[in-house]
């Protein structure tokens, strides 16, 4: 019991302490510290609530969805611009709920970086994909009902992911938010963003009915 509380204390004290120490010692770079800390602390509540209440089925399903999204990245590697990760995260969020969506996104980021290399961007990637999954969970009803909303969300997710990573690039480079550099970053990332958007739309249109059918089938077969 004591150990358990120590763990939470560690997380909730260590990160604020890091922010304060960082901001006091390195005032020029305080934005970077704060943004990193915010991104990391944002993940913690999800981890804790997953730790506390999650059935075995949810646990295994989370592993499967995460593995599918990362494996999809390898499987579709020969076809250029086809990255199903975001689409898978959105589907996970809309069918299994906010928390599940967030965790699928965050874990997909960590695990795909096992193969492509961890970096200072890992926490930001975790957060960005996590938030995309989380919002998909919030909007689950309209997303399931209407194809148009789904496509709009696919476009939004592509842009949002790019923008969030650009914000982080700018903060990291200037220590403050420099609008000029932000615009330049968006401009240079434009082709990549376009690819994200297109592949999100294609995958969402193709994968979403597949998942709907399969989940329905599971419900009938196993009586969930």
């Amino acid at each position: 019991m004591v150990k358990k509380y120590l763990k939470y204390l560690f997380v909730f004290l260590l990160i604020p302490a890091l922010i304060i120490i960082g901001a006091v010692l390195y005032p020029q770079r305080s934005f970077v510290i704060v943004s990193a800390a915010v991104v990391i602390t944002a993940c913690v509540p999800f981890f804790i609530s997953f730790e506390k209440n999650s059935s075995t089925r949810r646990l295994v399903m989370l592993a499967v969805m995460t593995a599918l999204s990362v494996a999809g990245r390898f499987i579709f590697a020969p076809i250029p611009f086809f990255k199903p990760v975001t689409a898978m995260v959105v589907i996970a969020g809309m069918y299994f709920g906010c928390e599940f969506g967030f965790l699928t996104g965050a874990l997909s980021a960590v695990i795909s970086n096992f193969y492509f290399g961890q970096g200072a961007w890992t926490p930001f990637q975790m957060f960005s994909w996590g938030i995309i999954g989380f919002i998909a969970g919030l909007l689950s009803n309209p997303l399931i009902k209407s194809k148009i909303v789904l496509i709009i969300y696919g476009v939004f997710a592509g842009i949002a992911y790019s923008l969030m990573m650009d914000v982080w690039t700018v903060l990291w480079m200037d220590g403050t938010f420099n609008p000029e550099r932000f615009i330049a970053a968006i401009a240079t990332a434009l082709p990549v963003t376009a690819q994200y958007i297109i592949s999100n739309i294609i995958f969402l249109i193709i994968l979403e009915p597949l998942f709907r059918k399969k989940i329905e089938r599971l419900k009938v077969k196993f009586g969930l």
Binding site: F47, S54, A67, L68, A71, L107, V110
Partner: peptide, 30 residues
């Protein structure tokens, strides 16, 4: 990595290690 995750959250560490096993499986069956 799994050892570190296991210190913070044992369930997530299990998810992580299962995922890492699933990925090559899925690619193989694909």
């Amino acid at each position: 990595f799994i050892f570190l995750f296991g210190k913070i959250s044992p369930k997530l560490a299990l998810v992580l290690s299962m995922t890492l096993r699933f990925i090559p499986n899925f690619i193989k069956s694909f």
